[in-house]
């Protein structure tokens, strides 16, 4: 096995894993705070991919030439609109169901997921969409023939994911908002008695989760340049797997789970077989859950957000 091939597969896995991690953060935060699997999260990610393409197209129609400027504006817009999506979904589909049966929010989340997918399909058409490649810089290590490379977009994805995770961990651990989140998660009634507006905290968590999905959506769209209305489901289920693998409810766990899953996938398809990479990932998930039900980093009582 050549070092540069192994290295390249590690880079591939790291990038893919960072994407999973970014989306997994959304799952894990929502699960941490209200103990509910937000099945619509993957579709929020899909929405953000469309928003990215739309925003870039509008900007170029207005004659914006500077790529970094366009990307920053797009990222901001996408995060804002996707955040509104997160807020609205919580308000419409989950808040009325608080205190209802445990399965009710799950079903309504699946309903929202269907709703979003088909809304986009009806509004935007079902064909594949894409954006032109904007950033084509690349870092290479090695000689001309054997090298390990990482494109600038890939590096951006890895940095963004770790940055997001670090930022959110700091937010949860060190700020007043974070304390309120943790209090709400521990005991919602007690938190309310202590004067925390738990409704607002839960809404905030949904908005943050959606914004993370938006970062992922924008960067992934820049990286692959192609998407359709179904990407949310495919990527969502993987990210969800990542969140569970790392221990659902734990932020570093989501990141770890994502990266492990990404590495598993690319190493398995690189050196064993492309066909069965997903079977392998899901098998790992099942095994981890059988032998360590709370995931790798999830400790049932400690540090869940």
């Amino acid at each position: 096995m050549d070092w540069h091939i192994l290295g390249q597969q590690l880079v591939n896995g790291l990038t893919l894993g960072s994407i999973y991690g970014l989306i997994a953060i959304g799952y894990t935060m929502v699960y941490g705070i209200i103990g509910m699997i937000n099945f619509a999260h993957g579709d929020v990610y899909m929405i953000s991919a469309y928003l990215t393409a739309i925003s870039l197209a509008v900007l170029s129609a207005f004659g914006v030439e500077s790529v970094p400027f366009a990307i920053v504006v797009t990222l901001g817009l996408t995060m804002f609109i996707t955040g509104v999506y997160g807020w609205s979904i919580e308000r419409v589909a989950y808040r009325p169901l608080r205190g209802s049966t445990r399965l009710a929010p799950l079903i309504s989340a699946i309903g929202i997921s269907l709703l979003l997918q088909n809304y986009v399909q009806v509004a935007q058409g079902a064909r594949n969409q894409g954006i032109p490649s904007l950033i084509d810089g690349v870092f290479r290590v090695g000689n001309d023939k054997d090298f390990v490379q990482m494109t600038h977009v890939q590096l951006l994805i890895v940095i963004a994911s770790f940055g997001a995770m670090a930022g959110l961990t700091w937010l949860i651990q060190r700020t007043s908002l974070g304390r309120q989140c943790r209090a709400t998660q521990q005991d919602r009634h007690m938190a309310e008695i202590l004067g925390i507006n738990t409704d607002r905290i839960i809404s905030t968590v949904f908005v943050i989760g959606a914004a993370m999905a938006a970062i992922a959506g924008t960067l992934v769209t820049l990286n692959y340049g192609s998407f359709d209305f179904f990407v949310g489901f495919v990527t969502g289920i993987k990210a969800f797997t990542a969140a569970v693998l790392g221990g659902i409810g734990s932020l570093p766990g989501a990141m770890l789970g994502g990266i492990l899953l990404g590495l598993f996938e690319s190493l398995f398809s690189g050196f064993v077989n492309t066909d069965y990479k997903d079977v392998f990932s899901f098998s790992v998930l099942v095994l981890v859950l059988i032998f360590r039900p709370s995931g790798l980093l999830g400790r049932p009582e400690v540090e869940k957000v």
Binding site: A93, S108, G111, I112, V122
Partner: peptide
């Protein structure tokens, strides 16, 4: 045809709000 799955999703949400059981 185009809107039926859309309506189906909305129905699931509304049903859960009005008749969660």
């Amino acid at each position: 045809a185009d809107y039926r799955v859309l309506a189906f999703g909305a129905l699931m949400v509304l049903m859960m709000i009005w008749r969660p059981r």
